[in-house]
């Protein structure tokens, strides 16, 4: 049932028209995307956009309402233990096994992957090597509860990788980390995903993080994908316009245009010296993303109010 699909052309993740409904609420309204082998993809969106639901369906932790999903060639709803052995999960909120020692947990988790070793993929990862890779060699004997937030997160990455997964999920990996720990974490993820040649799917609500880590960004809001591409592609795709400002006859004027260079040329040809203080602003992905988030939050607030009114009635 869970024969591994080894074809190189086949995407690691295929999602088609994925829908999820809780009661009367549609959380995912027909989501489609693919992740190819070796890609690092960020699923970006505000809180409540449906990112966690999507990733939990892919991980096989949640049953979907409708749509087609294949992860490593298998429908996650029917993924067996051998399928599970091929992916790793790094959650934002792991705080399990607080009394265990770092090395102990890593060795235990690793031992469960040993039977899934193949010639191409010896499993698990050597514990000491992995501890070195995530910078925890000096803390191998410590209790998990004695680790700092950043150290704990690095251990979570190690546990997610110990089975040498072909695919790793990072669910909001830096939520609650201080800026330095965040930057260290980003370095770590970039390094291991390159070194291990692992496919990775990262959920985040932080655009800067998505730009830092991912080859490709998928923006999810209100249960729909509104953009999918590299950071530059997204800037063109969803912004599509530059902002041109100038002063003409004492008036400040602003215009959003697709081709700002051509616009400026025509403007100057037509009005010549009447135009001053010409200014062209590059389309900013961040501005657009923040606008999207604001829209989503407003919509959510409206929905909440309606719900409250409904409850009051």
């Amino acid at each position: 049932m869970n024969r591994p699909t080894r074809s190189v052309d086949r995407p690691v993740i295929e999602v088609e028209e994925l829908r999820m409904r809780y009661g009367a609420v549609d959380v995912l309204k027909g989501v489609s995307f693919e992740v190819r082998r070796g890609e690092v993809v960020a699923l970006l969106g505000p809180n409540g956009a449906g990112k966690s639901t999507t990733i939990e369906i892919l991980e096989g932790l949640r049953a979907r309402s409708a749509g087609r999903v294949e992860v490593l060639g298998v429908d996650p709803a029917h993924g067996g233990e051998d399928w599970r052995a091929r992916s790793g999960i790094v959650l934002q909120s792991w705080r399990d096994h607080a009394k265990w020692r770092v090395r102990e947990l890593l060795a235990y988790q690793g031992s469960l992957y040993a039977r899934y070793t193949t010639e191409r993929m010896p499993r698990p990862w050597d514990v000491d090597e992995l501890l070195g890779a995530v910078g925890l060699s000096d803390h191998a004997g410590r209790r998990l509860s004695a680790l700092s937030g950043g150290q704990r997160r690095r251990l979570d990455v190690a546990v997610g990788l110990v089975g040498r997964p072909e695919l790793v999920y990072f669910d909001e990996p830096t939520a609650g980390l201080d800026p330095q720990a965040r930057r260290d974490f980003h370095d770590l993820v970039r390094r291991v995903s390159r070194e291990l040649d692992t496919t990775a799917l990262i959920t985040t609500h932080d655009l800067a993080e998505a730009e830092q880590l991912a080859d490709r960004i998928i923006i999810l809001t209100q249960g729909r994908i509104i953009a999918d591409g590299t950071a530059e592609e997204l800037a063109r795709q969803i912004v599509g316009a530059d902002e041109v400002r100038w002063v003409q006859g004492g008036d400040r004027r602003t215009r959003l245009v697709a081709d700002s260079t051509a616009f400026a040329r025509e403007l100057l040809l037509e009005h010549g010296t009447a135009v001053s203080a010409l200014e062209i602003r590059r389309a900013s992905l961040e501005d657009t993303y923040l606008t999207l988030v604001r829209e989503a939050e407003t919509a959510a607030m409206v929905a909440d109010e309606q719900e409250l009114q409904g409850a009051a009635r």
Binding site: E81, I89, L91, D96, G163
Partner: peptide
């Protein structure tokens, strides 16, 4: 307790983790 702190979830996302 293991459900609350996520230990059981960790077991679930590990192959044969629940049996172990």
């Amino acid at each position: 307790a293991d459900r609350e702190d996520g230990s059981l979830l960790r077991a679930k996302v590990t192959p044969n983790g629940i049996r172990a």
